[in-house]
Protein backbone atom coordinates (compact mmCIF):
# COMPACT_ATOMS: atom_id res chain seq x y z
CA UNK A 1 0.00 0.00 0.00
CA UNK A 2 1.52 3.25 -1.09
CA UNK A 3 1.93 6.08 1.37
CA UNK A 4 -0.31 9.09 0.84
CA UNK A 5 1.56 12.10 -0.46
CA UNK A 6 0.67 15.66 0.36
CA UNK A 7 1.54 18.50 -1.95
CA UNK A 8 4.20 20.58 -0.16
CA UNK A 9 2.79 23.69 -1.83
CA UNK A 10 -0.95 23.58 -1.16
CA UNK A 11 -1.38 20.50 1.01
CA UNK A 12 -3.63 18.70 -1.46
CA UNK A 13 -3.56 14.92 -1.69
CA UNK A 14 -4.56 14.93 -5.33
CA UNK A 15 -1.08 14.01 -6.56
CA UNK A 16 -0.23 12.14 -9.72
CA UNK A 17 3.11 10.61 -10.63
CA UNK A 18 4.89 10.13 -13.89
CA UNK A 19 8.26 8.91 -15.09
CA UNK A 20 10.73 10.48 -17.47
CA UNK A 21 14.18 9.66 -18.70
CA UNK A 22 17.25 11.76 -18.19
CA UNK A 23 20.78 11.29 -19.42
CA UNK A 24 23.43 11.45 -16.72
CA UNK A 25 26.95 12.01 -17.99
CA UNK A 26 30.31 11.93 -16.32
CA UNK A 27 33.52 13.08 -17.96
CA UNK A 28 35.63 10.05 -18.92
CA UNK A 29 33.01 7.81 -17.32
CA UNK A 30 30.42 7.78 -20.08
CA UNK A 31 26.74 8.41 -19.72
CA UNK A 32 23.66 6.50 -18.73
CA UNK A 33 19.98 7.09 -19.22
CA UNK A 34 18.06 6.77 -15.99
CA UNK A 35 14.37 6.79 -15.19
CA UNK A 36 13.30 9.51 -12.78
CA UNK A 37 10.00 10.25 -11.09
CA UNK A 38 7.98 13.42 -11.06
CA UNK A 39 4.95 14.24 -8.97
CA UNK A 40 2.31 16.69 -10.04
CA UNK A 41 -0.26 18.34 -7.84
CA UNK A 42 -3.54 18.41 -9.71
CA UNK A 43 -4.86 21.13 -7.41
CA UNK A 44 -2.15 23.81 -7.64
CA UNK A 45 -0.49 22.40 -10.77
CA UNK A 46 2.97 22.32 -9.23
CA UNK A 47 5.44 19.67 -10.39
CA UNK A 48 8.31 18.34 -8.31
CA UNK A 49 9.89 15.30 -6.72
CA UNK A 50 7.70 15.36 -3.63
CA UNK A 51 8.59 11.80 -2.62
CA UNK A 52 12.36 12.36 -2.76
CA UNK A 53 12.84 9.34 -4.96
CA UNK A 54 15.26 10.77 -7.48
CA UNK A 55 18.26 11.75 -5.36
CA UNK A 56 19.26 8.19 -4.56
CA UNK A 57 18.93 7.08 -8.17
CA UNK A 58 20.98 10.00 -9.44
CA UNK A 59 23.66 9.70 -6.77
CA UNK A 60 24.16 5.98 -7.28
CA UNK A 61 24.40 6.47 -11.06
CA UNK A 62 26.93 9.27 -10.66
CA UNK A 63 28.97 7.16 -8.23
CA UNK A 64 28.97 4.32 -10.73
CA UNK A 65 30.04 6.55 -13.61
CA UNK A 66 32.75 8.18 -11.50
CA UNK A 67 34.11 4.73 -10.66
CA UNK A 68 34.18 3.98 -14.37
CA UNK A 69 35.93 7.29 -15.06
CA UNK A 70 38.66 6.44 -12.56
CA UNK A 71 39.28 3.06 -14.17
CA UNK A 72 39.21 4.54 -17.69
CA UNK A 73 41.62 7.34 -16.83
CA UNK A 74 44.12 5.11 -15.09
CA UNK A 75 43.86 2.53 -17.86
CA UNK A 76 44.64 5.28 -20.38
CA UNK A 77 47.81 6.11 -18.52
CA UNK A 78 48.85 2.49 -17.99
CA UNK A 79 48.14 1.49 -21.60
CA UNK A 80 50.35 4.34 -22.74
CA UNK A 81 53.27 3.20 -20.68
CA UNK A 82 52.89 5.41 -17.69
CA UNK A 83 53.89 3.81 -14.45
CA UNK A 84 51.46 4.31 -11.62
CA UNK A 85 54.37 4.30 -9.20
CA UNK A 86 56.04 7.12 -11.09
CA UNK A 87 52.81 9.09 -11.17
CA UNK A 88 52.32 8.54 -7.45
CA UNK A 89 55.86 9.75 -6.86
CA UNK A 90 55.41 12.83 -9.02
CA UNK A 91 52.10 13.68 -7.37
CA UNK A 92 53.52 12.93 -3.93
CA UNK A 93 50.83 10.36 -3.24
CA UNK A 94 51.55 7.32 -1.06
CA UNK A 95 52.65 4.38 -3.17
CA UNK A 96 49.82 2.09 -4.32
CA UNK A 97 47.27 4.92 -3.99
CA UNK A 98 46.46 4.98 -7.69
CA UNK A 99 46.45 1.19 -7.87
CA UNK A 100 43.91 1.07 -5.06
CA UNK A 101 41.78 3.65 -6.83
CA UNK A 102 42.02 1.63 -10.01
CA UNK A 103 41.02 -1.60 -8.28
CA UNK A 104 38.21 -0.23 -6.16
CA UNK A 105 37.18 2.60 -8.50
CA UNK A 106 36.32 4.60 -5.43
CA UNK A 107 38.75 7.37 -4.64
CA UNK A 108 37.65 10.44 -2.75
CA UNK A 109 35.91 13.24 -4.64
CA UNK A 110 39.20 15.15 -4.57
CA UNK A 111 40.94 12.11 -6.05
CA UNK A 112 38.51 11.95 -8.94
CA UNK A 113 39.08 15.65 -9.64
CA UNK A 114 42.85 15.15 -9.58
CA UNK A 115 42.60 12.26 -12.05
CA UNK A 116 40.42 14.27 -14.40
CA UNK A 117 42.87 17.17 -14.31
CA UNK A 118 45.87 15.02 -15.17
CA UNK A 119 43.91 13.16 -17.87
CA UNK A 120 42.72 16.39 -19.43
CA UNK A 121 46.11 18.07 -19.06
CA UNK A 122 48.73 15.33 -18.73
CA UNK A 123 51.48 17.94 -18.71
CA UNK A 124 50.34 18.75 -15.17
CA UNK A 125 52.35 15.67 -14.21
CA UNK A 126 55.42 17.52 -15.40
CA UNK A 127 54.37 20.51 -13.37
CA UNK A 128 54.07 18.24 -10.34
CA UNK A 129 57.44 16.72 -11.18
CA UNK A 130 58.86 20.23 -10.93
CA UNK A 131 57.34 20.64 -7.47
CA UNK A 132 54.73 23.04 -8.82
CA UNK A 133 57.43 25.67 -9.12
CA UNK A 134 55.76 28.60 -10.81
CA UNK A 135 58.36 29.43 -13.46
CA UNK A 136 58.71 25.81 -14.56
CA UNK A 137 54.96 25.46 -14.66
CA UNK A 138 54.72 28.49 -16.90
CA UNK A 139 57.39 27.13 -19.22
CA UNK A 140 55.63 23.79 -19.49
CA UNK A 141 52.34 25.48 -20.13
CA UNK A 142 53.75 27.81 -22.79
CA UNK A 143 55.65 24.97 -24.46
CA UNK A 144 52.49 22.92 -24.64
CA UNK A 145 50.71 25.86 -26.19
CA UNK A 146 53.62 26.29 -28.62
CA UNK A 147 53.27 22.72 -29.84
CA UNK A 148 49.55 23.17 -30.16
CA UNK A 149 50.11 26.14 -32.48
CA UNK A 150 53.06 24.55 -34.28
CA UNK A 151 50.89 21.56 -35.14
CA UNK A 152 48.27 23.60 -36.92
CA UNK A 153 46.34 23.99 -33.68
CA UNK A 154 45.64 20.29 -33.57
CA UNK A 155 45.50 19.00 -30.07
CA UNK A 156 48.24 16.52 -29.30
CA UNK A 157 47.18 14.08 -26.68
CA UNK A 158 50.27 12.87 -24.87
CA UNK A 159 48.30 9.79 -23.94
CA UNK A 160 48.64 8.27 -27.36
CA UNK A 161 46.91 5.01 -28.09
CA UNK A 162 49.38 2.22 -27.65
CA UNK A 163 48.45 0.75 -31.00
CA UNK A 164 49.22 4.04 -32.71
CA UNK A 165 52.42 4.71 -30.90
CA UNK A 166 55.44 2.68 -31.90
CA UNK A 167 57.73 4.68 -29.71
CA UNK A 168 59.25 2.82 -26.80
CA UNK A 169 59.45 5.96 -24.71
CA UNK A 170 56.21 7.89 -24.72
CA UNK A 171 57.70 10.97 -23.18
CA UNK A 172 56.24 14.40 -22.94
CA UNK A 173 58.61 16.76 -24.67
CA UNK A 174 58.89 20.48 -24.23
CA UNK A 175 61.14 23.14 -25.69
CA UNK A 176 62.21 25.92 -23.41
CA UNK A 177 63.68 28.91 -25.20
CA UNK A 178 65.00 30.52 -22.12
CA UNK A 179 68.64 31.16 -21.26
CA UNK A 180 70.38 27.82 -21.14
CA UNK A 181 67.60 25.34 -21.85
CA UNK A 182 66.64 25.00 -25.46
CA UNK A 183 65.01 21.60 -25.65
CA UNK A 184 63.91 19.30 -22.95
CA UNK A 185 62.21 15.96 -22.64
CA UNK A 186 60.65 14.93 -19.41
CA UNK A 187 60.25 11.21 -19.17
CA UNK A 188 57.94 10.02 -16.45
CA UNK A 189 58.46 6.39 -17.33
CA UNK A 190 62.03 6.04 -16.24
CA UNK A 191 64.12 7.09 -13.32
CA UNK A 192 65.80 9.75 -15.44
CA UNK A 193 63.36 12.60 -15.41
CA UNK A 194 65.21 15.05 -17.63
CA UNK A 195 66.85 14.18 -20.91
CA UNK A 196 68.21 16.88 -23.17
CA UNK A 197 67.45 16.45 -26.83
CA UNK A 198 68.35 18.46 -29.85
CA UNK A 199 64.99 18.06 -31.58
CA UNK A 200 61.51 18.17 -30.23
CA UNK A 201 60.12 14.65 -30.31
CA UNK A 202 56.44 15.43 -30.51
CA UNK A 203 55.92 15.92 -34.17
CA UNK A 204 52.82 13.91 -34.82
CA UNK A 205 49.34 15.28 -34.97
CA UNK A 206 46.95 13.17 -33.03
CA UNK A 207 43.34 13.85 -32.38
CA UNK A 208 42.13 13.60 -28.85
CA UNK A 209 40.57 10.18 -28.89
CA UNK A 210 38.68 10.19 -25.63
CA UNK A 211 35.11 9.54 -26.53
CA UNK A 212 34.00 8.20 -23.21
Amino acid sequence: MSQQINCPVCGSTDISSSEYNELVSESYGGSREIGLFQNFCNSCETPGDFENRNDEIIQSTIDELKAKAVVHILNDFVENGFSLSAMERALELPQRTLAKWKNTGKPSAAGVSLLKFIRCFPWLLDVAEHKFEFQSAQKIFVSTAYYFIANNSTYIDPLKNKTESQSSSPSMTYTFNNNSITNMTINLHSSASNILLSEPTINRTLELTCDR
Binding site: P8, V9, E22, T46, P47, G48, D49, F50, N52, N54, D55, I58, Q59, I62
Partner: peptide, 19 residues
Protein backbone atom coordinates in the same frame (compact mmCIF):
# COMPACT_ATOMS: atom_id res chain seq x y z
CA UNK B 1 10.99 22.07 -1.27
CA UNK B 2 12.43 22.46 -4.77
CA UNK B 3 9.61 22.67 -7.31
CA UNK B 4 9.42 22.87 -11.10
CA UNK B 5 12.79 22.22 -12.76
CA UNK B 6 15.01 23.45 -9.95
CA UNK B 7 16.86 20.19 -9.40
CA UNK B 8 17.32 19.54 -13.09
CA UNK B 9 18.60 23.09 -13.64
CA UNK B 10 20.99 22.72 -10.72
CA UNK B 11 22.35 19.53 -12.30
CA UNK B 12 22.53 20.96 -15.78
CA UNK B 13 23.96 24.39 -15.09
CA UNK B 14 25.88 24.07 -11.85
CA UNK B 15 26.80 20.38 -11.56
CA UNK B 16 24.87 20.15 -8.28
CA UNK B 17 23.48 16.65 -8.51
CA UNK B 18 21.13 16.18 -5.60
CA UNK B 19 18.76 18.08 -3.38
Amino acid sequence: IPIYNVLRDARTHYKISTK
